[in-house]
Simulated scan of single mutants.
Amino acid sequence: MPIEYIGEYEINYSGVPLALVKGWGAYLTIYAPSSNPMHRYRVFPGRRVSVCSVFGSEAEAEAEARKVALAMLALGKHH
């Protein structure tokens, strides 16, 4: 699972094999810092994004999840 830091946010994205169809789903979690250094505040819970899309590879699904994260952070839609 790739982890990337953008500003104060930590994004975790991954490609996960789908159970009912052949292909990969794009999954994303976004964290923000909290006042407790041992804790992260989850502002976007881990879930599948671009749910109508099935990707041919794990890398394609990861790229889609990253693209969604960047768009959400740019638009402030993570809260």
Results as ranks from 00 to 15, higher is better:
Phe44Gln: 09
Ser57Asp: 06
Gly56Pro: 00
Ile11Gln: 09
Tyr13Arg: 00
Ile11Leu: 06
Glu4His: 11
Arg42Asp: 13
Phe55Gly: 06
Tyr41Asp: 15
Ser34Cys: 08
Phe44Cys: 01
His78Arg: 08
Pro2Arg: 04
Glu4Asn: 08
Ser50Arg: 14
Lys77Ser: 15
Val16His: 07
Val16Ala: 04
His78Tyr: 15
Asn12Gly: 15
Glu4Ala: 12
Tyr9Ser: 03
Gly7Leu: 00
Tyr31Phe: 05
Ile30Glu: 03
Ala65Val: 08
Val21Glu: 13
Tyr5Pro: 00
Ala32Tyr: 04
Ala59Phe: 04
Pro33Val: 14
Glu8Leu: 14
Leu70Asp: 09
Pro2Ile: 01
Tyr41Ser: 14
Ser57Ile: 02
Arg42Cys: 15
Tyr13Trp: 13
Glu62Arg: 07
His78Val: 12
His78Asp: 12
Ser50Trp: 01
Ala65Ile: 04
Leu18Gln: 07
Pro17Thr: 12
Lys67Tyr: 05
Thr29Ser: 07
Arg48Ile: 05
Ala61His: 01
Trp24Met: 06
Ala26Asp: 03
Asn36Thr: 10
Leu75Ile: 14
Ile3Asn: 11
His39Val: 11
Phe44Gly: 07
His39Glu: 12
Lys77Val: 15
Gly23His: 01
Ile30Asp: 01
Ser53Leu: 14
Ala74Asp: 09
Glu64Pro: 02
Val16Lys: 13
Ala69Tyr: 05
Val21Gly: 04
Gly7Val: 00
Glu64Leu: 02
Gly23Asp: 03
Arg66Asp: 03
Asn12His: 10
Ala59Asn: 08
Ala63Asn: 12
Arg42Gln: 06
Gly76Ala: 04
Ile11Met: 10
Gly76Met: 04
Ser50Glu: 09
Pro17Arg: 14
Arg40Gly: 06
Leu70Gly: 09
Ala69Ile: 11
Arg40Ala: 06
Ser35Leu: 09
Ala63Glu: 10
Val51Thr: 15
Gly25Tyr: 03
Ala59His: 06
Val49Asp: 03
Leu70Cys: 07
Ala74Gln: 03
Gly46Val: 06
Ala19Thr: 08
Ser34Pro: 01
Met72Leu: 15
Ser53Thr: 10
Val43Glu: 02
Ala74Thr: 09
Val49His: 06
Glu10Phe: 08
